[in-house]
């Protein structure tokens, strides 16, 4: 597995497509309403949005991420880093923020490569 993360609009998708020679057809675009587990594509974009969809519906996002990791050892996962702002006043966003933080840790531990994007520039945090 590969984890690509960074703040919003930092060039994560552009970097991933170029670096791994993929096109948008290879990408599963998550959104905050669809709770189904991403499947059938090699790149999963904004996995945090899938988690938000689950949290909104009181589904167990943390358990689903564990299952996703087990079932998709070759996935390239793109995640927004939402850990840097102030603690949200809204309980749903608070749960989401913590769940994504924990998920990013698990994704990073299970990834052979971890890359952080800053203003379009990659930093390799882990590489095997």
């Amino acid at each position: 597995m590969v984890l690509i993360f960074g703040g919003a609009y930092q060039g994560k998708l552009d970097y991933t497509l170029e670096r791994f020679g993929r096109s948008k057809d290879d990408v599963h675009f998550c959104n905050d309403t669809d709770t189904d587990m991403p499947k059938g594509k090699t790149v999963v974009y904004e996995i945090d949005k899938w988690m938000l969809a689950m949290i909104k519906k009181n589904a167990d996002a943390t358990e689903s991420i564990k299952q996703f990791i087990t079932e998709n050892p070759d996935a390239i996962v793109i995640c927004n880093d939402i850990s840097g702002g102030i603690v949200p006043i809204d309980a749903t966003f608070r749960k989401w923020r913590e769940a994504v933080g924990r998920a990013m840790g698990q994704l990073a531990q299970n990834s052979g490569e971890v890359v952080r994007l800053f203003c379009g520039i990659p930093t390799i945090l882990k590489s095997i």
């Binding site: 930092q10 927004n80 939402i82 840097g84 702002g85």
Partner: peptide
Amino acid sequence: YIYSDAHIFESLTEEYR
């Protein structure tokens, strides 16, 4: 660097970010 909030902003703020 204003890109790491755990929030879905309304459209004008999102457009600004």
